[in-house]
Design a protein around this nucleic acid. Structure first.
Length: 596
DNA sequence: TTTAGGG
DNA sequence: CCCTAAA
């Protein structure tokens, strides 16, 4: 494989808006060590992984996962917070300051903002929605029968072009949250033995979709398999003539971001530095040819009536194309096509080297016994061969989804293998007791809403696709309604135990509902008591640490201070921003007084 | 472990 | 979001 040394420092660059792409090792922040650790590695992650791999391969110094002993979350030991020492803003400040119309004491620019003006323009994210690699892969497989299976009409039109939905939709499929499997071309192990690849011509097409993360979905691997009868007896199972190769040509970025290839590369290095190597790339299904796709895909069996007992018959397997969805690549507009190709190449290469294994599904059933013959497995010419699928799975053990799984609406040719939908865990109800029942503070109306309830909704989609692009705005419905937390961040399924250690956490933009909860909590508790805020309003939301909340508050304050035109991401209701400024001013003052 | 800030 | 110095 071609490996390039990336000459970037391992630190100093980040990919802030890289949509759901954990790209670097994560620090050891105890609070998040828990569940977050399970957040997996997804799409973009690959980039980082790749880098990590590259570096690791070269340095040989990569096997040092900073495995932090999975410490049990000891949160409950949190000291009793005295939430009422100081009158919550809502109870006091609002009356004093706001009530009298002296709100003017607070920054007002926000007031002038048009809440509606959500024009976020940003255009620089290029989403490689799906990399379609076509290749011919012929594999000879010892078989008892001889038959040919053809997948017609898809040679060049195999690209499962996803539907592009422009309208905001809550139910989008996203591929990255899924256990993603990436296409491998050089190893389709059909019978558990070394793959026998005969040839592979390829052409790849890398559709780039601009900020339209909306349709991030994509069919995963969609392999068009073509079996060709081969009666030659000369070869046995190992007829690997030439390794398949992937050649990228015709890559045509339709929309190049205006920033950072540097960041991307940096992230790779960064990743590498953290010794994070391929995380778990869960398995995804590759649909083998037979689907009832309009294209007339089908398996044509031209078998001779050979009995399964017959020996030495070979089957040529031809996979015309695999789809590798959701690769995120950001490159500056002035980047060269060559650099783009290289970036894509790096990812693809790493994917292929990432230790993936192929699974075979017949009629939807996973055939695990590698020793079983095709015939025994039921892949005989005399049988109804109408549903063979291949899956690419991460070599790492696959674990059951720990958290939430995202449903992906993949454009599979055949039966789909959509991961079950999981539900955001919503354990305990809002811990009111923790907030000090003894207190008489009438915080009732201001009590922060715990988001647990909000999160308890079924979320069929993952909304990790946000970024600050305009497109993302359309994705998440924004409304002041608390229930609006609808857009939930869901944890992708992929992960593999030790491998995700050190993975940068997936970006999960705060939803309006979360923001509201945060604001409410801060109004009560003030700034500077993040641990309490966390307990109060996000106690059951594992992926939000108090540091996250603190950071979010910081950004909220900033956001509220700038003009709407300068804001990005899902717009936050002006009302909330106003409250943010109010609370910030109030508590800042409180802190100052406290010091004096 | 939390906070507070810079990156 | 990450990373860390301080507390």
């Amino acid at each position: 494989m071609v490996r390039k040394r990336l000459g970037y420092s391992s630190r100093g660059h980040r990919i802030p808006t890289m949509p759901r792409v954990p790209n670097s090792a994560r620090g050891k922040r105890s609070t998040r060590r828990k569940k977050d650790e399970n957040d997996d590695m997804c799409a973009m992650d690959l980039l980082a992984t790749v880098a990590g791999k590259l570096l690791a391969d070269q340095d040989n110094s990569s096997s040092v996962p900073n495995t932090s002993a999975a410490k049990a979350k000891k949160r409950k030991s949190v000291k009793e917070e005295h939430f009422d020492e100081i009158p919550p803003l809502k109870n006091v400040a609002m009356e004093k300051d706001v009530g009298s119309g002296s709100v003017s004491a607070f920054p007002r620019q926000a007031k002038n903002c048009l809440a509606e003006n959500s024009s976020t323009r940003n255009g620089a994210d290029t989403v490689l929605e799906s990399l379609t690699v076509k290749s011919n892969m012929l594999a000879k497989i010892p078989e008892c029968g001889s038959y040919g299976i053809h997948h017609a009409g898809s040679s060049s039109s195999a690209e499962p072009e996803q539907v592009h939905q422009a309208e905001p939709k809550v139910s989008r499929r996203q591929a990255d949250g899924h256990p993603v499997a990436y296409g491998i071309f050089n190893s389709v192990d059909v019978d558990g033995k070394p793959p026998a690849l005969v040839s592979s011509d390829s052409s790849s097409c890398v559709p780039l979709s601009s900020h339209d993360k909306e349709h991030q979905t994509s069919s995963l691997y969609r392999g068009v398999v073509q079996y060709t009868a081969d009666r030659e007896d000369d070869e046995n199972s190992s007829g690997c003539t030439h390794p398949s190769t992937i050649e990228s040509k015709g890559c045509k970025p339709q929309y190049l971001g205006n920033h950072r290839i540097r960041k991307l590369l940096a992230s790779k290095v960064r990743k590498a530095a953290r010794n994070k190597i391929c995380g778990g790339i869960p398995s995804k299904k590759i649909c083998g040819g037979l689907s009832k796709k309009a294209s007339g895909t089908s398996f044509a069996m031209e078998g001779q009536n050979k009995s399964c007992e017959a020996e030495n018959y070979h089957v040529k397997l031809r996979i015309k194309s695999f789809n590798i969805p959701e690769l995120f690549i950001k490159v500056p507009e002035n980047a060269t096509i060559g650099s783009l190709k290289r970036a894509v190449m790096d990812v693809v290469n790493s994917i292929m080297e990432g230790g993936l294994r192929v699974g075979v599904l017949l009629q939807g059933k996973d055939i695990q016994d590698d020793n079983k013959t095709l015939c025994q497995a039921g892949i005989c010419h005399d049988k109804k061969l109408n549903n063979i699928d291949f899956t690419l799975e991460c070599e790492r053990e696959r674990e059951p989804p720990s958290g939430v799984i995202i449903q992906e609406q993949m454009d599979f040719l055949t039966t789909d293998m959509v991961e079950p939908l999981a539900r955001m865990k919503c354990e305990e109800p809002f811990p009111e007791a923790d907030v000090g029942d003894d207190s008489q503070q009438p915080r009732a109306p201001y009590r922060s809403r715990s988001l647990s309830d909000l999160y308890s909704v079924h979320c069929p989609v993952q909304m990790a696709s946000q970024d600050t692009t305009a497109s993302s705005q359309a994705i998440v419905p924004v409304s002041p309604a608390p229930s609006d937390v609808g857009a939930l961040a869901i944890v992708p399924l992929c992960k593999s135990k030790g491998s995700e250690v050190g993975q940068r956490r997936m970006r999960r933009p705060f939803t309006v509902g979360e923001v509201e909860a945060l604001v409410g909590a801060v109004e009560q508790l003030g700034t500077g008591r993040w641990r309490a805020v966390k307990t109060l309003a996000f106690d059951s939301i594992d992926h939000r640490t108090y540091v996250d909340l603190k950071d979010k508050w910081k950004t909220l304050v900033h956001t509220a201070s700038i003009s709407p035109q300068q804001r990005r991401g899902q717009p936050v209701p002006q009302e909330l921003l106003d409250r943010v400024l109010l609370a910030q001013a109030y508590w800042s003052q409180q802190q100052q007084q406290a010091r004096l």
